[in-house]
């Protein structure tokens, strides 16, 4: 089954092979070529040594968000990780935060269930009835465009210690859905208030600002600074700021 390869210009890649019942790291010697990324190496193994190796991938251009894995234990897109960065040996494992299906493929469907809990874009009745096309200014577009760069690779979800180490999927939507919520909350034409959701089921209070999500984001979205912290501040406006509460009472608002 194993293909003999030259001893020079090869790397030793250990890939997790197995499923929910268990598995093991299997070593493959892979010939390297200039510009090779980890996904190339995995696909080479699939083509030459292990045709049954399960791996999810699509674009190989860091835009589809499919090939998320843990290389030497750190969450990355395989297609954006040069083999040359890892020396002669490295390991490739599936994302730890989600249930494994097989080999490098995990079941990320929990994320799609979370997504359904976030109310979608909801304009005011006045805007909804406006027959004219809406006009938005560039500065308003720029702010939410950053969040819409998300490719849903779920690396941020994978690295978030609330989900990864503490398995608090019951209490926190995770960084990806903080930026989705922020993109809706900061939209000038959206009229819905998602702060109660964020304080409650969304669990923005579970984040303790360790910024690992920002570190792993392949789209370089400032998840913590531009989405999670602003959401925390908006939740504080409503729930934790006594002066604002008094102001709301004086203005006759709840």
């Amino acid at each position: 089954m194993a293909v003999s390869t030259p001893s020079r210009n090869v790397v030793l890649m250990s890939v997790f092979r197995g499923d929910a019942d268990g598995g093991e790291l299997v070593n493959y010697r892979v010939p390297i070529r200039e510009g090779m990324v980890v996904l190339d190496a995995v696909l080479w193994v699939q083509a030459n040594m292990a045709p049954d190796l399960a791996v999810r991938w699509n674009c190989k251009a860091a835009k589809c968000g499919s090939c998320s894995a843990e290389i030497n234990g750190f969450p990355r897109l395989m297609c954006k990780s040069p083999v040359a960065e890892y020396g002669e040996e490295f390991t490739v494992r599936p994302m730890r935060t989600f249930p494994i299906i097989r080999d490098l493929v995990t079941d990320v469907s929990w994320n799609y269930e979370v997504n359904k809990k976030i109310p979608p874009f909801t304009p005011s009745a006045e805007d909804a009835a406006d027959p004219e096309p809406w006009r938005m200014q560039q500065e308003d577009v720029d702010r939410i465009t950053e969040f819409r760069k998300c490719i849903e690779c779920f690396l941020c979800q994978d690295v978030c210690h609330v989900l990864r180490n503490h398995d608090r999927k019951d209490a926190f939507f995770g960084p990806r859905f903080m930026i989705r919520t922020a993109s809706l909350e900061m939209h000038p034409k959206d009229a819905l208030d998602r702060r109660p959701l964020m304080k409650g089921e969304g669990g923005v209070g579970m984040c303790n600002i360790t910024k690992c999500c920002t570190e792993v984001c392949p789209e370089h979205i400032h998840i913590t600074d531009n989405a999670i912290i602003p959401l925390k501040e908006r939740v504080a406006d409503l729930y934790f700021d006594p002066l604002r509460a008094i102001g709301r009472r004086l203005r006759g608002k709840k």
Partner: peptide, 13 residues
């Protein structure tokens, strides 16, 4: 092809 000692993908690293 060689195999390393058995390990779960979700075993603590």
């Amino acid at each position: 092809m060689a195999t390393a000692p058995a390990a779960s993908s979700h075993e603590p690293l």
